[in-house]
Design a protein around this nucleic acid. Sequence first.
DNA 1: GGGCGGATCATACCGAGGTTTAGGATCGCA
DNA 2: TGCGATCCTAAACCTCGGTATGATCCGCCC
Lengths: 223, 223
Amino acid sequence: MTARPAPPSSLASVEEPVVFVIDDDASVREALSNLFRSVGLRVEVFGSAHEFLQYKLPNAPSCLILDIRLPRLSGLDFQAELAKADIHIPIIFMTGHGDIPMTVRAMKAGAVDFLTKPFRDQDMLDAVTAAIERDRNSRDEAMVLSELHALFATLTPRERQVMALVTSGLMNKQIAAEIGLAEITVKIHRGHIMRKMGAKSLPDLVRMAELLGIGPASGRSQT
Amino acid sequence: MTARPAPPSSLASVEEPVVFVIDDDASVREALSNLFRSVGLRVEVFGSAHEFLQYKLPNAPSCLILDIRLPRLSGLDFQAELAKADIHIPIIFMTGHGDIPMTVRAMKAGAVDFLTKPFRDQDMLDAVTAAIERDRNSRDEAMVLSELHALFATLTPRERQVMALVTSGLMNKQIAAEIGLAEITVKIHRGHIMRKMGAKSLPDLVRMAELLGIGPASGRSQT
DNA sequence: GGGCGGATCATACCGAGGTTTAGGATCGCA
DNA sequence: TGCGATCCTAAACCTCGGTATGATCCGCCC
């Protein structure tokens, strides 16, 4: 009975990895493009940060290679820009004449690596491999989380509230007293929650709540 | 009855923060010592990495300030050394003539900051504040985790096994079938587990299992 | 106005969780 | 040899979780 809406079952990011390169020097773009292609990696090159932003990012593990010295915007500022725009992609910096404070700032902001020109091809490839791997992992996590959020979104406000109390460990009768309901009503909500969230057991639901960051904050502010 | 061994109830790290400084230059030690004391921070200075290792580290949020150029051991190697010895303390590097690869390596290995001499006092103080804060948090986490491990250690092998299955969401009868027991026996174990772990509810226990990294790996290998 | 989803509650029933009491078996250590 | 810890089980009993059936009420949209 009870026909469930069939979970979309993550088709994951099956697309092949992509390396993005932004550099105003055509010869650098050319060289890097050849390097990555030689090891079978897909590459997309751009002459400016602006060009890159026009490009529609694919749903594939990827990374971005940036020169600290970009035409208009500095690489560091662009990094901050991307973070602010909620675009999270691992960044590898290159520089011909960078300094230590720059390096520190970039690394603190989450850069994967910071290579000084001229660098050895192998160092660049190692950095890219690490960056792609990091992106693959964070994409997998984000995927799971977004599916969970989608399920959570199907809950009514009342159900969300009950879910928070259930996963915090209260008994049905305590929840009922807490929010002024009959115990049976709580049971009904609880049943709905389990079905909608696709939880096969209470521990299952608890783990979902953990991932969703659900405290007993009812459902108003989600810091 | 069952007299429980009274949980040690974290007396937390109430001790005041400490800043450790390692530098072979006495004037640098002196200057930093004065700087930190001027803002009311406790400071301990050392002329070498070896001296530092002799010192018994207090149970207080702290950080370490290192020159990349140390007498015998390089600062980077010493950082690796500490990590290998499982001594985790936030590190702030100083350098007069460091380069970018060094900086990258230090930051990748988890350094909090990397300051070039001469630096502004305020930059150093900011870095130390951030480092102390980071250490405070990781100490709090470690404290909770170690108390949890202590409780978990009081479980018998069988109880550990049952706990893994319970928190994975199986019903008592399924657990019983899984490991060849009567359902009633599983219930008994389950009761013991809840008491010994101090869990007030199943969700509580599930969260503990999460922190302990307990999968359905029975209890053999704890990677 | 009728339909629909959300929320509420009652009664009844059943399976799962959990404790107590009481016992039996094995093993290691003093 | 005896004690204690671990592990296992049974019967009785109670609470809690969960579902089904059926029903009322409200607000919203077509």
